[in-house]
């Protein structure tokens, strides 16, 4: 590579330094501090330096916390699976379109990214609630006399909320990878006599894998750290790990234990990234839909 002779390596370092310094100060060091505090001890007089694994033992051995972790992973995986199932057919259809309709539909896929996450979670309250759209419609139709109570404040409502806000993180990367497939490949499969379904299984699906993996990681990553959705729609039975962590800091003032719970959540995410590493590098997930 021909580099201009004036661009010396130290200039590059000088340019990189502010961002590196910033991220070191406000991400790397705080995460290091979290890790440290997670081995400390919290009591009525505050959190004091120590080195013990008690917080981790408690987090992983006490059924309340362990079950909460398992449940949260389950909810995140379910959200990812549902998002995949509902996204793929739509992405497949849009990628096969041409012209104005296609660009319009793609813009409509982007638009919700630019609206408040809190708002898009909140809107389920007047839809699923007692006086909400669904209950009032059912009453109006004469199908029920009393509003259904099970629509809100449980795990199902949390899934609805999570899928609603995160699905597009699946749809977009899948669409992007499907859109890149050379149409000649479909024709080739056709010409060679492959039935459409077989062509789909053998050509389309494997080639869209980068998008699927990339979207899955995004959706899993975001749903596992949820706080807003379970807090607003979940009620006691729809609680997730994020809410347990938050209460250690906002209510119980147990920073050491809350720290351990936070570290466990980070580890779960890192394990997820490690598992998917053989298909896609972490960098590629975030640079254009696994392209």
């Amino acid at each position: 590579m021909a580099e201009p002779t004036t661009a010396r390596s130290w200039t590059a370092w000088l340019l990189a330094a502010p961002a590196i310094a910033y991220l070191t100060a406000f991400t790397l060091i705080p995460v290091g501090l979290l890790l440290t505090v997670s081995f400390w001890k919290s009591g009525i007089y505050g959190t004091t330096p120590d080195f013990n694994f008690g917080n981790y033992v408690r987090a992983l051995a006490v059924p309340l916390y362990r079950d909460q972790l398992i449940k949260t992973i389950r909810i995140a995986l379910t959200t990812t699976a549902i998002s995949f199932l509902i996204s793929y057919p739509a992405a497949l259809y849009i990628s096969g379109l041409k012209g104005r309709l296609k660009s319009m539909l793609v813009v409509l896929l982007f638009l919700p990214f630019w609206t408040s996450f809190v708002v898009r979670t909140f809107l389920w309250l007047p839809i699923l609630g007692r006086t909400g759209l669904i209950n009032q419609s059912l009453i109006w139709l004469g199908l029920i006399d009393q509003p259904l109570e099970f629509l809100l404040y449980n795990e199902g409502a949390v899934l609805v909320g999570l899928v609603y806000v995160f699905t597009l993180f699946m749809t977009l990367p899948i669409y992007l990878s499907l859109d890149k497939i050379d149409p000649a490949l479909h024709e080739a499969a056709n010409d060679l006599g492959a039935p459409p379904l077989q062509a789909f299984w053998r050509v389309t699906l494997p080639l869209s894998r980068p998008g699927i993996v990339s979207g899955s990681i995004m959706v899993f990553l975001m749903s596992i750290g949820s706080y807003v959705t379970p807090q607003l729609l979940g009620g006691p039975s729809g609680n997730m790990y994020g809410n347990v962590i938050a209460s250690q800091f906002l209510a119980n003032n147990n920073w050491a234990f809350g720290g351990a719970l936070s570290v466990i959540l980070i580890v779960v995410v890192l394990v997820g990234l490690m598992i998917t590493r053989r298909w896609i590098g972490t960098r590629e997930i975030f640079l254009g839909g696994g392209a």
Partner: peptide, 23 residues
């Protein structure tokens, strides 16, 4: 350095708030 840049995105949202609270 690239991984350092991605770190704030990879850390779960709730934890991203917590680490700064502690810090």
């Amino acid at each position: 350095i690239f991984n350092l840049v991605l770190l704030p995105v990879i850390i779960p949202g709730i934890v991203g708030g917590i680490v700064l609270l502690i810090f």
